[in-house]
Structure formats: structure tokens, C-alpha cells
Amino acid sequence: MKNYVTQKGDTFSSLARQFKLKDEGILKTYHNLHCPQEDVMQEPVPGKTIFIPEDPQLMAHETQSQDISDSSQEESTDEMSSGEEDTSEQQAKNEEPSSEKTDQQSNKEEKKDKKEDSSSSPHEGKYFIVQKGTVQCNQGFKFPKFKVTSHQKHYWNDEEGNADYLAVTEDDLQLDPAAQPFGQCKLKPSSGGYLPCAYAPAGKWQKTYEKVKVMGKSCLTEISELMCSTGGKITILKHGQQSETSKSQVGKANTQEQQVYNPVVDFDEFKEDTKGTDELYYS
């Protein structure tokens, strides 16, 4: 047992720490049990003597403190590890739906691509356009032919290289005749009638067949169209690949045989009508 004269500002708590006791309650109880009745205190009184225990069991050993500290640190580490594991598990859970979502999105895109591939092209079953094909404008009156200038290389269904069968591409904007190809323009009314066509293509041909190209230029089919700067819409009237019959062929044809094929037509009269003309007749 030690004796200690209390100083101003001392408390059982501060004295317990000073003398390395387990807690202030031990110090207070020990003193009040061993002191005279008149020296019993609830808080230290300056100038009074306090009895300090020296029993090792009442002391706060450093090893115990270290154990407590280590235990607390281990618990803290375990909590942190547990928290990290929970966070990792949560992240994994969050990533799994994300991965599934990505897979679903990928599958949707693949199905979409397959659907697009399987769906028929609007050009399917359509004829390619050749130079002798004709066009029409929804604001015009005449039907000019094409004049191919983008190449002199590819011909549709003609082994002899006849210019009439040159493939028309998106860059072929010239028409035959070049001047006023559609005659008059409905968008230019006047007191004396419609004014002449002022053909002015607005860019290249649209709705071309991009899978078939000549010298890098997409080919035209029956659904291709072109806009005129004046406001008209130009579309394909005839693709130009029809077989043609000249007047000499008409003259040599067997009337009775043709009458079987075309019972409504008076073929002899038709022969007379074709004499003296250079027109070609499309079948």
C-alpha cells in the first residue's frame, strides 16, 4: 500500500491512470475500505492522504493493454476484411447483371443483324438501268434517256459492247436531250403556259444498289430516284433492257402466227403503220 497526498485538480480517474490501476473504481473502493471513517471520500480532497493499492491483480498490466490493443486491432482488421469481402461480393453481384446485360445486348444486335441480312433488299427482282432507259419527272412532260459519262466499261446483258447497254451509275446525271429534257415544268406556270424545264440535279442519284458497283460507283435499279433543284422528283420510267423489234422485223413477221399471239391486234394494219418510220417497239 502506498500513501499519496492529493493535490489540487486530482481525481480518482487521473490518479488511477497515474498509478496504473485498472480503473478509478478500484482506487476509490480500496481507499474507502482502508481509511478512517472521517477520510472517506467521493472525490479526492486536496491535502488529504489517499491509500494506493499495490496488489498486481489490481494493476493495469502493459501486457493486458497490449493484448486488448491487439485484440481490438484484430477485430478491426476482421471487420475491414469482412467489409472488403462484402464489397467484393456486392461488386461481383453488380458486375454479373452488367455482364448479362451486355450479353443480352450483344445477342439482340446479332439477331438484328441476322434479321437485316435475311430480309430481302428492295432492289431484289428489279432490273439494272442501261443508257437507253428512260426517266420521268413528276413536274415534266417528256421522257429523256440517259447519257452515261461515269465510265465506258460495263454493259448489262450485252456481250458486243453496245453503248445502249452501258450500266447507269449514281454519277450519271446527264440526260438525252441535254436541253430541256423534260419539256416544260409544271412548277413554272405563266400566262402563256408552263415555262421550259431547267433541269438541275440536286446531288447524285439516290436509292442506288450499293452492293453492285462499277468503278466504285453504285448502280441504278428501277427504284432509284433523283431530285431536281427546281423541286421535281425524277424516277425510272423504263429500265431499257426490253427486247426491241425493228420495222424490218415487223415486216418479215408471219401475220397468222402473230395474230395467234395477239388476237386483239390487226397485224396487217400494224405492218402498214410501221412503214416509213424508224421507231422501235418494246415488247
Rank of each mutant, 00 (worst) to 15 (best):
K2G: 06
N3M: 14
V5F: 00
S13F: 14
L15E: 00
A16R: 07
Q18A: 12
L21T: 00
D23A: 04
E24Q: 15
E24C: 08
I26A: 04
T29C: 14
N32G: 01
L33W: 14
L33I: 15
L33V: 12
H34C: 07
Q37Y: 15
E43F: 09
P46I: 00
F51C: 12
E54V: 06
P56D: 04
Q57A: 14
M59E: 14
H61M: 15
S69A: 14
S71Q: 07
Q73L: 12
E74I: 13
E75P: 04
E79Y: 14
M80R: 11
S81E: 09
D86M: 09
D86K: 15
D86T: 11
S88L: 13
Q90V: 08
Q90A: 13
Q91T: 13
A92G: 10
E95T: 14
E95M: 13
P97S: 12
S98N: 14
T102R: 10
N107S: 15
E110W: 07
K111D: 14
K112E: 11
K112G: 01
K114G: 04
K115T: 15
E124L: 12
K126E: 09
Y127W: 08
F128E: 00
Q131P: 02
Q131V: 12
T134Q: 04
V135L: 10
V135C: 08
Q136K: 10
C137F: 03
C137A: 03
N138E: 00
Q139N: 15
Q139G: 11
F146V: 05
V148Y: 01
V148C: 02
Q152K: 06
Q152D: 13
K153W: 11
Y155C: 06
Y155G: 05
N157S: 08
G161K: 03
G161W: 02
G161A: 02
N162E: 09
N162H: 03
D164V: 01
L173S: 06
L173D: 06
Q174P: 09
Q180H: 08
Q180F: 04
P181G: 01
F182I: 05
G183Q: 00
P189F: 02
G192A: 04
P196C: 07
A198M: 08
A198K: 12
Y199H: 07
P201Y: 03
P201G: 00
T208K: 05
Y209M: 12
V214E: 02
V214M: 03
G216P: 01
K217E: 07
K217I: 04
T221M: 05
E222N: 00
I223L: 10
C228L: 04
K233H: 09
K233P: 04
K233F: 00
K233L: 11
T235G: 13
T235Q: 09
T235V: 10
I236S: 01
I236G: 00
H239M: 02
Q241W: 06
T245A: 11
S246G: 09
Q249A: 05
V250S: 01
K252E: 10
A253P: 02
Q258S: 09
Q258M: 15
Q259Y: 04
Q259L: 03
Y261E: 04
V264P: 00
V264N: 10
V265Y: 02
V265F: 04
E269W: 09
E279R: 13
Y281W: 06
